[in-house]
Write a protein that binds this DNA or RNA. Structure first.
Lengths: 220, 220
DNA sequence: TAAGAATTTGCACTGACTGCAAGTTTTAGT
DNA sequence: ACTAAAACTTGCAGTCAGTGCAAATTCTTA
């Protein structure tokens, strides 16, 4: 009953699993777009993919995961990019490059919405999806931060790598939300501005000696 | 059937509502700590607070919200702090001050775990809670960013305020996760380091002319 | 081709959550 | 006080997500 991710010798079994998974994510995405993510039932998705409901849950533990259809290869790709970062590239630049890659993919199709673009839109519209997305994302972030820290030769437990990774996803998330809130600017330009601000600092006059001890005024 | 948040003239009705809500969050938190957040049923919580299950859902739309027991006043407090920020204080410093306030509250009780401290621990342990927390949080962030942007006199639609707010919550989240991952350092010191890094920039050698156009090497 | 492993499926069950209508409590007007 | 209206609570019936189990089915491999 264990569904593995082996990419080794693709026998018929392997192939069928991939097909089933693909059919499920495709059906889930299509139906989510048609009826709204929260109005789709697992039964419908399973029906459309022509498998039993029980089988759906053999592949995805949550309805949302099918809609998000996360491809494990994406994380793999990013991790590799980190490990193979050119000598001298700053870790922040590495992350920016990874994001840039995704943006390119996104733009290269322009009007014809890619599955990825559609999913991003859905995420901005459904709190449920956002929640699951973040949960999945935070697992990935752990791996990315570990890889980045390793690559940087940063002492274990340093918050820097985790911070950089989080900052990256944050820049993207903020950009997406700005768009959603009606900004005219392109995602790319918003992301660029975000990276730029994060790279050079959010507070030019920061006083580190002050640190966090409270110094409030009016307090209820 | 609408439960309002009126804080005006506290008649008996108002008082009872507060009591019920308090009883529910208290019961939810206690049970979540005892049995783990995912092993508590709404029925148990309602039982403990001595109301019907249906009533539970009149107060909280999700089980998790009762456990998180978010106090709307907290957001109010933060918003006020933003609006009343001393002239000349950088927006980033404002946010840091707000976080510092929370940390102080947290530490002032030390061993005797506050409800807040307990909740933070639960959140780090339960994906479900994390998810709901993020959803609630992202709503708050919108408000905070709006207030901050207003205070800064930033043009509407600028990503800066949103970025600063996100950065703040990010610094806290990363610090919490570092602790969870076994760091010896105090939350406060981790948070301070995060703020410091974000304030002064994540990439000292950032080249803004490069922007985000892809420049990758090995690609699968 | 047959044993054995991996998958699919049906079934029964728990638990979150919702709409509705009836019952109860609180408030307000007189 | 008395009472009608408004605000809350509750039970009930029902939908849907998600899980464990064991019987069927399909694939692999010797």
């Amino acid at each position: 009953m264990e569904i593995e991710e082996t990419a080794a010798a693709p026998g018929r079994r392997e192939r069928k699993k991939r097909e089933t998974r693909a059919a499920l994510t495709a059906a889930a995405l299509r139906l989510a777009l048609e009826k709204g993510p929260d109005n789709v039932t697992v039964e419908e998705i399973s029906e459309a993919a022509d498998v039993s409901v029980r089988t759906f849950f053999n592949y995805f533990s949550h309805k949302e995961h099918a809609i998000l259809g996360r491809d494990p290869d994406d994380l793999e790709l990013a991790l590799r990019r980190i490990r193979e970062a050119p000598a001298g590239e700053s870790p922040f630049a590495t992350m920016r490059a990874i994001v840039a890659r995704v943006l390119d993919d996104l733009e290269s199709i322009e009007d014809q919405e890619t599955a990825l673009a559609q999913r991003i839109r859905l995420i901005t519209e459904s709190p449920n999806l956002l929640a699951q997305f973040v949960v999945l994302g935070s697992e990935d972030e752990r791996d990315l931060a570990a890889a980045l820290g390793d690559q940087m030769g940063e002492p274990l437990g340093s918050p820097l790598p985790a911070l950089i990774v989080s900052a990256t996803s944050m820049a993207v998330r903020v950009a997406v939300e700005q768009r959603k809130a009606g900004s005219d600017r392109s995602i790319r330009s918003l992301v660029d501005e975000g990276f730029s601000l994060l790279a050079t600092g959010l507070d030019p006059h920061y006083d580190p000696t002050l640190e966090s001890r409270t110094d409030q005024k009016g307090q209820a």
